[in-house]
Design a protein around this nucleic acid. Structure first.
Lengths: 212, 212
DNA sequence: AAATCAACCGACCTTTCGGTCAGTGTAACA
DNA sequence: TGTTACACTGACCGAAAGGTCGGTTGATTT
């Protein structure tokens, strides 16, 4: 009457984490009960406690899984592009694409930061976000050292602007939709393209031509 | 044994809203119980239900209060500055200053957007955020029409970048603090100055000198 | 065949939540 | 003085939460 103890090792645990990931991302931590997670995972609440010592521990597992996925994908986009400007553009586009693919996870991260503050921020940084951010800032610094970008700017600050623009696009999407003057809500790529364009021009050392 | 029925008309209600505002902003909606609000307001839980039909109704009252305060302050900063660039800079600085004064309320807004999505976004827009955003975008468009700024950009998009940079500074503050390469976490004014500088240069039509 | 062990479950526990209700004290007015 | 109106309360309720417990199952080991 059982499948085979556990089919593949870790399958039971995996299903729980996956179900939790979806539910947490959709409804937030507090709004999701252990019973709901168990039902969604096709198991029992008690069995979750067989794998995880508490609801918080399960949440942490979900968080680490998501961070690892984000890191592995975005590291590909590094060290491409002949110029720092091009690398930056590739990075930004890839980053946004990743967010577009997993809008719920973005919400999960943001929610966690808002809700739990500094302790969880440390968890997220440890999970790989720090490396990611550092890589982006290093592209900027490379550009400064080879003369592409203005040397008077903090690379980390530039990285923050780029990431902020992408993140906030998701966060404020529903709100922006309420403003009649906003037209780019359903065109993320166009939005991102314009943002990178402005920032690159803003940090560029070489004087650029003006359009039109 | 009572103070005088209610001291000043509306005082009881006011104390409840104020206590709720602080607690919601500090801990989030779900994490705050009606009992906690009552205790903090120096009254009883049942009395809150005398004024508000539900916990959600109380939350809405808090939200509208916060939005009204934000709007009234930031509308001052408009129509100052001889050039559009200067007006934009003033606007951004004033905006950040407002956020700095009320970090908890910023969190309250962001949390609400993440948690409740579109329906609450409509509430927030109606509460005055739409006017605010539109005013910012109009400064950009003025700059485009008088030749200061590149005409090929969506004014709302530029406004979004500026607001995003400010908002995200708060949201990701705890996370940024974990990154050793970030030095501007405790210098919001410096951060904002650099952001405005980059964006202004990025959207400027006139070719600018390079520093150093 | 006996023992072991992880996966798993139903039932149950305690706590806390949002919300209700019957009633009290006081000011204002008749 | 009686009555009405209202701010306000303590005690209570059902529901649902996180978490525990005793026990069953079935594959693996000896």
């Amino acid at each position: 009457m059982k499948k085979s103890a556990e089919e593949i090792t870790g399958e039971g645990r995996r299903k729980i984490v996956l179900a939790a990931e979806r539910l947490f991302a959709d409804h937030g931590f507090d709004a999701v009960s252990m019973h709901a997670i168990a039902t969604s995972a096709g198991t029992s609440k008690a069995n979750i406690y067989h794998y995880f010592s508490s609801k918080d521990a399960l949440y942490l597992a979900v968080l680490h899984r998501a961070a690892a996925a984000l890191r592995s994908r975005l590291q590909e986009a590094r060290q491409q592009g002949s110029t720092a400007a091009e690398a930056l553009r590739l990075f930004a586009v890839s980053h946004l694409q990743h967010l577009l693919d997993r809008p719920r996870l973005v919400q999960l991260f943001l929610r966690e930061l808002l809700e739990k503050g500094e302790p969880r921020a440390r968890d997220l940084a440890d999970a790989g976000l720090a490396e990611l951010f550092t890589a982006l800032a290093e592209i900027v610094r490379d550009g400064q050292e080879n003369g592409e970008f203005r040397p008077d700017l903090d690379p980390a600050l530039v990285a923050t602007i780029l990431v902020s623009a992408n993140i906030n696009f998701f966060q404020a999407r529903d709100l922006l939709r309420q403003y009649p003057i906003v037209h780019f809500v359903d065109d993320p790529e166009g939005y991102d393209h314009a943002v990178v364009d402005i920032v690159l021009r803003g940090i560029s050392r070489t004087v650029q031509e003006n359009p039109s």
